[in-house]
Design a protein around this nucleic acid. Structure first.
Lengths: 197, 197
DNA sequence: ATTGGTTTAATACCTGGTGCCAAAGAGAGT
DNA sequence: ACTCTCTTTGGCACCAGGTATTAAACCAAT
């Protein structure tokens, strides 16, 4: 029995499940060539829950009633959201986002993160980007984590327009800055606490 | 036995599961005050899958956006391209591009089309968006075909920056307008045809 | 009273596991 | 060689949350 293979197997197991969380233990035995008991001991050690628990967690994450906004259509993970005030989202640059030649992110992905966040932070039934003035300060590269911070500068709940400023950072460095003007469906926002159902 | 309650119960059942897909049949019996067999017959009639299938479907739906992410390479079909002069691309607004609530396209998709075109029209090894000033003139809707036209206003092959103006139309109506400043890798444009494979 | 839609019950079986215990295998130390 | 320990495998009971099927009970109208 080789002592090394165990850790290797643990790594492989983690990787396999990460890239396909829908695998049953039985399917994993085929890929790793060990018994199903070993797979289960491994999951135990690695604290990887069973298939059904994984699916449930995924379903819950995508369902989350708190974030009633259409979040899965949003680019980037919104990790903090104070409606009509500010918000933060994280977006990791991956293979599919970059020019293969240079490894530099295509501008519209960085824009999409900022735009999604700017729209999400507006507390309204319908919010649409009206215009934007944006600057790409330095390129974002493959594997970098872009952290976008949005601040609502003038919510204009009555006027029907809100100004949102977004700054995107990689570490300490700013990579993107944008000023968004967002249309809002004017009226049912923080108008009063209660109006809508 | 009342004949009405059955249809009412079906409606209630559908509503309950819609607003909380995580309910087991056993939990549903408590809420509807009928036996578990009745619940199961009802689900059968209404073609509502069992809890685990529901969770799996939700998990799958929230999982595949990673692979089927629409924002891949160039957004829109480039149908005409005169390098360093002008270009045209067509992009059809589909389900995955709109707010499900309103059927209006998310701004970053319309931007992505324009941005892709602005970058493509620049005849250079590496071209990156430096900044942009954009306006969403009217919303683009589901199933509409967006036609973007880009014009290079100052190619500045030596300077390292180019200005590109993009107009996007649906039919006769303009939906988007943007002024892009594109960085170019200054010099090695069509320097000569060959370099890279 | 018989028929028919509806509801409930009972039972066998399924998947994808957990939990536990025992046995076998593989070194490493003495 | 023998022992000790870690790892792997196997077997069995059990669980949730079902499906599928058959049978019985309920209720009401013809």
């Amino acid at each position: 029995m080789e002592r090394i293979p165990k850790r290797q197997r643990h790594q492989q197991l983690s990787r396999l499940i990460e890239e396909n969380p829908f695998l049953t233990d039985r399917e994993l035995t085929r890929q790793l060539k060990v018994s199903i008991q070993t797979i289960r001991l491994d999951r135990l050690e690695l604290a990887i829950p069973e298939l059904r628990e994984r699916l449930k967690m995924m379903a819950e994450r995508s369902y989350d009633p708190v974030r009633s906004l259409p979040l899965h259509e949003v680019i980037g993970d919104i990790v903090d959201l104070q409606l009509d005030k500010s918000g933060i989202s994280i977006f990791e640059i991956r293979e599919e986002h970059v020019f293969s030649r240079s490894g530099i992110a295509r501008g519209h992905h960085v824009f999409a993160q900022a735009n999604s966040l700017a729209v999400a932070v507006i507390n309204d039934e319908i919010a649409l980007t009206a215009s934007a003035d944006i600057r790409f300060i330095r390129p974002a590269r493959l594997a970098e984590k872009c952290i976008a911070k949005a601040y609502v500068r003038s919510s204009g709940a009555v006027k029907g327009k809100a100004k949102v400023e977004v700054f995107t950072y990689v570490g300490e460095e700013m990579v993107f800055q944008g000023n968004f003007v967002i249309y809002r469906s004017a009226g049912d926002s923080e108008h009063e606490g209660g109006g809508s159902h």
